[in-house]
Design a protein around this nucleic acid. Structure first.
Lengths: 162, 162
DNA sequence: TTAAATTATTACAAATATATAACTATTTAA
DNA sequence: TTAAATAGTTATATATTTGTAATAATTTAA
């Protein structure tokens, strides 16, 4: 029984993913020059305040060397900054600068615009339904993501947690 | 009012996307050697039966030359086949072979397994809620995607539809 | 205090994705 | 029938992402 539900959820989520990816990436590519991961890092930092390099890698499932690359780019544009941990000097926290927060807001509103043209064609009832359901999916996935925080599998450098 | 709803939906969807991407791509990468687009093409073909090259590009928002590359790969593995249109000899339909259908089923069950380990930690109630809500989101996005079928923006070769 | 583990970086190589331009074959329309 | 438009391909350059290995600095544990 639970088995079947899981299959059904998988089916739904696997249909949602490419469509969502398409809609967003299209908006992002059309209106900014940032690659997806850069946007996602900024999103993660917005929600978590600050994250370690390893934490960012875990959140996005990106190998650590790639995290360094992404952050280097964001640093160069002064969108994030590094903070040292007082207790453990190996750890570096990353957080958005004011400029970064502003930029991310802009990006989000660009995406909203991009969505608007599509969503505005939905009937009000459908939009309401989508709001409620996307809310529920979002909540469940965030919960899931926490349970699923297993680092990045293929990477020797950041082994699968435990 | 509708404005605010759209912002909220955008916010939700933009949080859903990276988490979903992470969970899926992790499962896919860990268990198959197919890149995301290959999986998505197979998914689109599963749902639509057959699609033209241009249609595939539109569905996934991938430039045409990249569609050719993806299909070449799938052809080489005998997972899809080309069909000529009788009426218009420029058009080539792509559809899954039996082998391709079988392979995609395998992939989906691998993804289900990957999801299972995560989902099984959710409480039954949460799972039910996720099933219903993912269903609704899926339905809305599919509808949205049809309205949003505007080809691939940055490409001169496959201009913005109409 | 030495060995092991952890955090982040550097350095590559390879795979995948994006962006353009030019081209063939075919159909549509003036 | 010629010109314009469409479907798909080829070719090429660049950007992004992934996969490994090795390294330095620091902390933890034996």
């Amino acid at each position: 029984m639970t088995e079947k539900k899981i299959d059904a959820v998988t089916e739904n989520l696997s249909r949602i993913l490419p469509i969502l990816g398409k809609i967003f990436m299209k908006g992002v590519r059309a209106k900014t020059s940032y690659p997806p991961h850069v946007i996602f890092v900024m999103g993660a930092l917005t929600h978590h305040g600050k994250l370690t390099m390893t934490g960012i890698g875990n959140h996005l499932s990106v190998p650590k060397p790639q995290v360094t690359t992404l952050i280097d780019r964001l640093i160069a544009e002064e969108l994030v900054e590094r903070l040292n941990d007082e207790k453990d000097r190996r750890i570096i926290y990353i957080q958005l600068t004011e400029k970064g927060k502003g930029r991310f807001k802009e990006i989000k509103s660009l995406m909203s615009e991009s969505m608007k043209s599509a969503l505005s064609e939905l009937e009000e009832e459908m939009l309401d339904k989508l709001l409620l359901s996307s809310d529920a999916v979002c909540e469940a996935l965030i919960l899931l993501n926490e349970k699923f925080q297993q680092g990045y599998c293929h990477l020797t450098n950041s082994k699968a947690s435990e």
